Amino acid sequence: MKYFFTLLATVALAGALCAQYTGDSLYYLYPTDTMLLKVDGASANLVFEHHLAPKQTVYGASKFYGRNVEDFYALSPELRRGYDVGDVIKVAIAKELIRYEIPGDSLAWFVPVRYQLAKGETLYGLAVRRLGWLNPDPITRLNPEVDPSQLKTGATLVIGYLPISGLPFTGRVYADAYQAQNAPLRALWESRTAGKEMPSENGKAAWTKKGDRTKFMVLHRTAPINSVIEIEDPRSRRTLYARVMGRIPEQIYKPEVMLVVSPLLVKAFGVRDKLFYVKTRHF
């Protein structure tokens, strides 16, 4: 009970002093916070923007929301360069964790979750297709004042609640379709390199328009054929994994080229220059 009353008092003070932040140095979420979910266009994840409060860290937020730090970097790559009070962390929220029914006397331990309708989205589509519910009845009960026939793009609806005590770990999130497609190679890399120190190599990569446009593939000078290589592009701050399919033709590429990437990797990295710098690791 002492904790309960302390929390309520702290919530009231935080609402007055720290409205621009999410939570404070002790709590990453308050019942008074506005938790507005939107659909991330690239990944189709339900995403919430957490505004870092004083003494909050990206690592602490990852533990609270049940995510890997890399998930935050994937959705907000600018965080890799550092962050400050008030900066935004995009947090993917698993729809399975949203509770649309809780006892009335437990509201102090939960934060309301709101959702912003995407273009062309309906109440039925939100409930059944987006949230995976059987029907839109829970949303109707939570929003008795709303007329479904009058809903427009950008309208906000209460869709349930999340606990302020933190969320369980719910697996890895990928920021876009390329990272989702790259997931099997990443998993293979992680399984084969777990607990090992992998030396890195920096240099120039080139790209070709030839080859399979649906696969992550590279040519390399020394990496074992059919092995997996990790490629980090400092410009886009994106790391992807590819299968080594062959050697670099000496008669076509200069010695300074350490890697030749496939068309799919070119698209995933957003490369325009014929030569670009990369950091690689391989077996």
Rank of each mutant, 00 (worst) to 15 (best):
P199M: 07
K90E: 13
G104P: 02
P199N: 08
S106G: 03
I102E: 08
L7P: 01
R80A: 09
R213W: 06
M1G: 13
F269T: 04
G166K: 04
R238N: 02
L142C: 08
S227G: 07
L97M: 13
T153D: 12
L131D: 09
V244M: 11
P168F: 06
Q179G: 06
F269S: 01
S191L: 12
S62E: 07
L36V: 11
D40L: 02
T222Q: 14
V261L: 01
G82T: 11
F216I: 06
P168E: 11
F48P: 00
I89W: 00
G132S: 04
L17W: 07
V69C: 07
K210N: 11
T57D: 12
E70H: 07
V228F: 05
F5Y: 14
L13W: 06
N68K: 09
T140S: 06
T57F: 04
N143Q: 06
E70K: 02
E201Q: 15
K55W: 15
T239K: 12
D105R: 10
T57Y: 05
E49H: 12
L29R: 05
G171E: 14
M1F: 12
R243E: 12
G246V: 13
D212L: 07
P112A: 08
V260F: 03
N143I: 07
A19Q: 14
V11W: 01
W207K: 00
L240H: 00
L107S: 09
V91H: 05
Y3L: 08
F4H: 13
L13H: 10
P138N: 06
I248R: 09
F216R: 01
T32S: 13
R129E: 13
G120H: 12
Y28I: 05
G154D: 06
V278T: 15
I252G: 01
L151A: 04
I93A: 00
P255V: 10
L97T: 13
G166E: 05
G171L: 11
I252M: 10
F110I: 00
I225Q: 15
I102A: 04
L151P: 09
L151T: 05
R80G: 04
N143C: 05
I93G: 01
